[in-house]
Nucleic acid binder design. Sequence first.
DNA 1: CTGTTAGCGCGTTCAT
DNA 2: ATGAACGCGCTAACAG
Lengths: 350, 350
Amino acid sequence: MGKVGIKDIAERANVSTATVSYVLNGTRNVKPRTRERVLKVIEELNYTPNDIAKSLKSSRTNTIGVIAEDVTVFNVPEIIDGINHYADRNDMHILLTNLRLHKRVGHQYADVDQYRKYAENAVADLLSKQVEGIIYIGVHPRDVTGLINSRGKPIVYTYCYTQNDLSIQYNDEQASFDAMNYLIGKGHRRIAIISGRMDSLPSRLRFNGFYKAVTESELPFDPQLIKVGDWGLQSGYELTQQLLALNEPPTAILVMNDIMAVGAMRAATEAGVRIPEELSLVGFDNREFSDYLNPRITTMDLPLQQMGYSSMEALSSLIKGEQPEGNYSPLCTLIERDSVASPGSRQTPS
Amino acid sequence: MGKVGIKDIAERANVSTATVSYVLNGTRNVKPRTRERVLKVIEELNYTPNDIAKSLKSSRTNTIGVIAEDVTVFNVPEIIDGINHYADRNDMHILLTNLRLHKRVGHQYADVDQYRKYAENAVADLLSKQVEGIIYIGVHPRDVTGLINSRGKPIVYTYCYTQNDLSIQYNDEQASFDAMNYLIGKGHRRIAIISGRMDSLPSRLRFNGFYKAVTESELPFDPQLIKVGDWGLQSGYELTQQLLALNEPPTAILVMNDIMAVGAMRAATEAGVRIPEELSLVGFDNREFSDYLNPRITTMDLPLQQMGYSSMEALSSLIKGEQPEGNYSPLCTLIERDSVASPGSRQTPS
DNA sequence: CTGTTAGCGCGTTCAT
DNA sequence: ATGAACGCGCTAACAG
């Protein structure tokens, strides 16, 4: 049972290979009788088409390359899932490359030169494999201009961006603006913010949203309510302690990720400040664990699936030579859980 | 700038395409002078090899197919990471297919017929693409015999198994045995267990480990200490309440996943039972959140990375026609954190 | 309209 | 170091 090919079929069915090809692809009319005969032989011989040979001639592979900086980072699987969803519907295939950035260079991803070589290799391999386009998934939104030269092949970035190419990134500013308005709608006016590191774009954009909400709703602007963390649990913990020690502490805190929110919860608990009765908390990222904490954290969910899907949509347009169009800045969604209440409220009547 | 091919190089360097090929692959000696000339032209023309054409002739693609039942399930990314690690070192490539099982059929994965069609399509596509082997990653360890016909291509299963093919699965029994001995070493003798659903193999294997430890250490065997949950938070919560209501409650509980352990913690907290002073808890899975809870959960870490890596090792052997050998039942590792103490201990001296 | 013949795509490799 | 056949399926040109 050596590989059965189109010519084996042809022979056994007493037709030419051309006819078999026409039957297989419906490229031309074939008399029903012959057609049936061919199909039967295909069945009998258990023929499996060889896309490699096909691709060589057609110079189409229906395959795109996905380069993920690190698949083990929480946001990546959902993005890949979105990519797969589109790929599935459009009969495309995914060649996955995992740069394993965290395992290789730790969190030093700010220094592009540390891993340029990995990225270049990945692209070279993918191009050799004749992918029709590339999607690059970052580990953290940042400018990766100059990291990759896709040699004219279409490329779309997501969860990061470049100055020259298309990138799909959720709307950070709107997200924190929405979160603030939710808090304001609950009656809060002294709202603190614990941001991530300020050298990160999401931090700045989310701060913009915060500031815009403060301004539009004419909240008292108090610099003491602005804290800059480093995304880590400990920083959320310490900064919350500082906020609680203020003469006039905030009634709510917008925390720029769920991990720091855990730290914030811990600080509050230790200080005997009850959440949400005495302090409300909104997190960011909708990490899985935020649903398991006590209280469950109200947080902004990132449209990861959609980012993957949109990336593929855009890439497909690019491959077809069309102008990509669509919503390339999908919105985050607030997940209401149990860490927010109106200020001064009591869940249990006294 | 149309695609530059081997013949463009040949022409520009005044050699035959054969020579270029020999230079490119080092398949044969080429006079250094010619060699240099060819290399220079390759550089100038920015030549990108075409692996498709190469594969057609060599009938080797250096590509394997990975079918994941659902990439968004917590264990999968690490497994894929392990696969990538091996692939990277051995210059292999990954064609990723995501069945998206949870999104398509929910948690009905027990009924294989629900998604046989998806799996079959995936395999057919992969075979057409001429992958040299397949790795199948399940969402939950179970028998998937008959789901897939790989038509003679090597296939390795992980995080699930079949009766006929090789599968890589961590050692469940040993894991719970180890966890028990850890607890016993801390001085516990009344140890309860909250298992997952009993129609799941891991549940049974882990129960075996529990039972073996009870027997070997001659612990009192009390059926009241055996509770069967359903992997969900709520069941961990309720079963722990039952355990705490016993006349003689356990001093420690082995919980078969971290999610139920969260429920257990919650029940203990509400009952005013302090962890770990009055009740010790060991979880399973080392989910990310188990490090963020308070107290942090001591839990068994699954060797996911290694499962991916070993799967690739085994598959590679199979592809080469060798007999695969190696450790195909890697061990779990206990992650000591803060949810276990000796019974009757006090962290704070009274 | 149906079926066949033969050349092609791109790189590899054997015989010269 | 080279010419040419080859891998496998597609498709233009041609024949009946």
